[in-house]
Computed example of a mutant assay.
Amino acid sequence: MLVAAARLGVAPADCLAVEDAPAGLRPAGVAGMRRIGLTTAHPAALLEADLLVADLSGLCVKQERAGLMVDIAPDAGCPEVRTAMSGIAPSRL
């Protein structure tokens, strides 16, 4: 994860990892990246993420002047996890 961020010239804290497996989410967290977990391959309880969505259809990435904006669809899945997280806006990261 750190190598990928370095190759892109982006600080890990400015990265967003979208993964469907604990093996991908864990190193992203250790690297200091924000994480969206997809519950397509593993149950939500096994995914250490800042936000969980059912699948990629719950995400919309848009180019804005300040960079990329990730919108989360209101019905993107796992609402019980979303409401339990503090400091994370459910609609935007």
Rank of each mutant, 00 (worst) to 15 (best):
T40N: 11
D14C: 10
T83N: 10
A84S: 12
P74G: 13
A73I: 04
D75G: 12
V61C: 02
V70A: 01
I36D: 01
L16M: 11
V81N: 13
L8A: 14
P27C: 10
R26F: 14
H42Y: 12
A17G: 06
P12F: 01
A66T: 06
G37C: 06
V53K: 03
A44K: 07
P27Q: 12
E48T: 13
R7H: 08
A73T: 07
G37I: 02
L2R: 14
V30A: 15
V53A: 05
G37W: 02
L38P: 10
A73R: 12
P43Y: 04
A45W: 04
L93T: 00
S57W: 11
L38T: 05
A76K: 07
R7E: 10
A6Y: 09
G77H: 11
G77P: 07
A5I: 04
P43V: 02
G9K: 11
E19W: 03
A41H: 14
P79K: 08
L38W: 10
A28N: 14
V18H: 09
M85E: 07
A31R: 05
T83E: 12
E64N: 03
P90N: 05
R92N: 12
T83C: 10
V18E: 07
T83P: 01
V18S: 09
P27V: 03
P90D: 04
A4Y: 02
G32Y: 11
A66E: 08
G32F: 10
L51H: 07
L47K: 12
M85P: 00
A89S: 12
D75Q: 14
R65W: 00
P22K: 09
M33L: 06
K62A: 01
E80H: 15
S86N: 13
A6D: 15
A45V: 09
P43S: 04
L59M: 04
G77I: 01
S86H: 15
D20Q: 14
D50A: 00
A17T: 07
A49V: 03
A54D: 14
D50L: 01
V3H: 09
A44P: 09
A54F: 06
L38S: 06
P27A: 09
R26I: 12
A13Q: 11
A66K: 06
P27G: 10
L16P: 04
A73W: 03
A6V: 09
A5W: 04
V70N: 00
V3G: 08
A89E: 13
P43W: 02
L56D: 13
L2I: 15
P27M: 03
V70T: 05
A13P: 04
A23Y: 03
D50F: 00
A89G: 11
T40S: 14
D75A: 14
R65P: 00
R35I: 01
P12N: 01
D20Y: 07
T83W: 09
R82G: 00
K62T: 00
V81G: 15
C60M: 11
G58W: 07
G58R: 13
L68S: 01
G29C: 09
G37K: 06
D14G: 09
A28M: 05
V70H: 01
C15E: 13
L93M: 06
A31G: 11
T83S: 14
I88R: 00
A66N: 06
V61A: 02
G77T: 08
K62E: 00
L2C: 13
D14E: 15
G58S: 07
E80F: 10
